[in-house]
Deep mutational scan, measured.
Amino acid sequence: MATGGRRGAAAAPLLVAVAALLLGAAGHLYPGEVCPGMDIRNNLTRLHELENCSVIEGHLQILLMFKTRPEDFRDLSFPKLIMITDYLLLFRVYGLESLKDLFPNLTVIRGSRLFFNYALVIFEMVHLKELGLYNLMNITRGSVRIEKNNELCYLATIDWSRILDSVEDNYIVLNKDDNEECGDICPGTAKGKTNCPATVINGQFVERCWTHSHCQKVCPTICKSHGCTAEGLCCHSECLGNCSQPDDPTKCVACRNFYLDGRCVETCPPPYYHFQDWRCVNFSFCQDLHHKCKNSRRQGCHQYVIHNNKCIPECPSGYTMNSSNLLCTPCLGPCPKVCHLLEGEKTIDSVTSAQELRGCTVINGSLIINIRGGNNLAAELEANLGLIEEISGYLKIRRSYALVSLSFFRKLRLIRGETLEIGNYSFYALDNQNLRQLWDWSKHNLTITQGKLFFHYNPKLCLSEIHKMEEVSGTKGRQERNDIALKTNGDQASCENELLKFSYIRTSFDKI
Results as ranks from 00 to 15, higher is better:
C335H: 06
E147P: 00
L88T: 00
G111C: 00
C328F: 02
N135E: 01
N135F: 00
D177A: 12
L102M: 13
C186T: 02
N105V: 06
H59C: 09
D261H: 10
C243D: 00
Y30R: 02
K292S: 15
C153F: 00
S244Y: 06
N52I: 05
W278D: 00
R263I: 10
E49D: 06
L120Y: 01
V34Q: 04
G192R: 08
H214G: 03
C328L: 02
H59M: 06
C311F: 12
L136R: 01
L152C: 05
L164Q: 08
R69I: 06
I158Q: 04
R298V: 06
N257E: 07
G188L: 09
F66L: 00
K176E: 03
C301Q: 12
I146M: 08
E57N: 15
V305E: 02
H212L: 11
L332E: 13
C315H: 04
C335N: 03
C215S: 08
N325P: 04
I163D: 01
G95L: 01
I56A: 00
L289F: 07
S112W: 13
S317W: 05
D247P: 02
C182I: 01
V121C: 13
E71L: 04
N309V: 06
L99P: 00
C234I: 08
V218L: 07
N105S: 11
I222M: 11
E314M: 04
N105P: 00
P269A: 08
E181A: 09
E57Q: 15
H307M: 15
S296I: 07
T211N: 02
P316C: 00
H291M: 14
I109M: 05
N52S: 11
H307G: 04
R279Q: 12
S77L: 11
N325S: 06
I163F: 03
H212S: 11
S323T: 09
C219N: 00
F283A: 02
L102A: 01
V200F: 10
L155K: 03
Y118H: 07
S324V: 10
I146L: 11
W210L: 03
N149L: 00
H236P: 04
L136T: 02
K80N: 09
L47S: 12
D277N: 15
N308H: 15
N202F: 07
R110D: 00
Q276T: 12
N295H: 07
N195S: 12
P269H: 06
E231G: 14
N150V: 09
S166P: 14
T229E: 06
N175F: 06
S77H: 01
L155I: 07
N322E: 02
K193V: 06
L44N: 07
E168F: 08
L260I: 11
I139K: 00
N175G: 06
N149G: 03
Q61M: 06
V34M: 04
V108K: 04
D184W: 13
N43Q: 12
V200K: 02
N170G: 10
R145V: 02
L29F: 09
L89F: 02
I82M: 10
P336H: 15
E51I: 15
L332A: 14
S225K: 08
Q216C: 04
L131Q: 00
P269V: 08
G183H: 13
L60S: 00
Y273V: 13
C186S: 03
V34K: 10
S284A: 12
N195V: 14
H226P: 04
C53L: 00
P31T: 08
E168G: 05
D184L: 05
I158H: 02
A190M: 06
E49H: 14
S77W: 05
C280A: 01
G241L: 01
T107P: 00
L76Q: 08
H274V: 09
I139N: 00
G183I: 13
P313W: 15
R141A: 02
T329L: 08
G37Q: 10
P187N: 06
L152S: 03
P313R: 09
Q204D: 13
E97L: 11
L155E: 02
P316L: 00
V200I: 11
G111I: 00
D277F: 03
T320P: 02
H28K: 12
E180A: 13
R141K: 02
C243N: 00
T329V: 09
K191Y: 08
N149K: 01
D261P: 05
V121P: 04
E97R: 14
K67V: 05
P271N: 06
S77E: 07
A119M: 00
C264F: 00
H307E: 03
V55P: 02
G300E: 04
C239W: 00
C252V: 00
C234Q: 03
E180L: 15
P249Q: 12
P334S: 08
K251V: 05
D247M: 05
Q303H: 06
H59L: 00
T250C: 06
R41S: 00
D248E: 09
P316D: 00
T140D: 07
K148H: 06
P197A: 06
A190Y: 14
R141P: 00
R263E: 12
I40T: 01
F103L: 07
Q204I: 13
I56L: 04
N43G: 10
S225E: 06
P334V: 12
V55F: 12
W160E: 01
E207H: 15
Y94V: 04
F283R: 12
S77G: 13
T211L: 04
L81D: 03
C186G: 04
R145H: 04
V121N: 00
F78L: 07
R92Q: 00
L155W: 07
C215L: 08
C315S: 02
I62F: 04
P104N: 01
I62A: 01
F73I: 05
G227V: 04
F116L: 00
L90W: 07
Q245N: 13
Q245F: 09
V108Y: 05
C255P: 00
D288T: 03
C153S: 13
N195E: 15
I56C: 00
N175R: 13
W160M: 04
I146H: 00
P316T: 03
P249F: 05
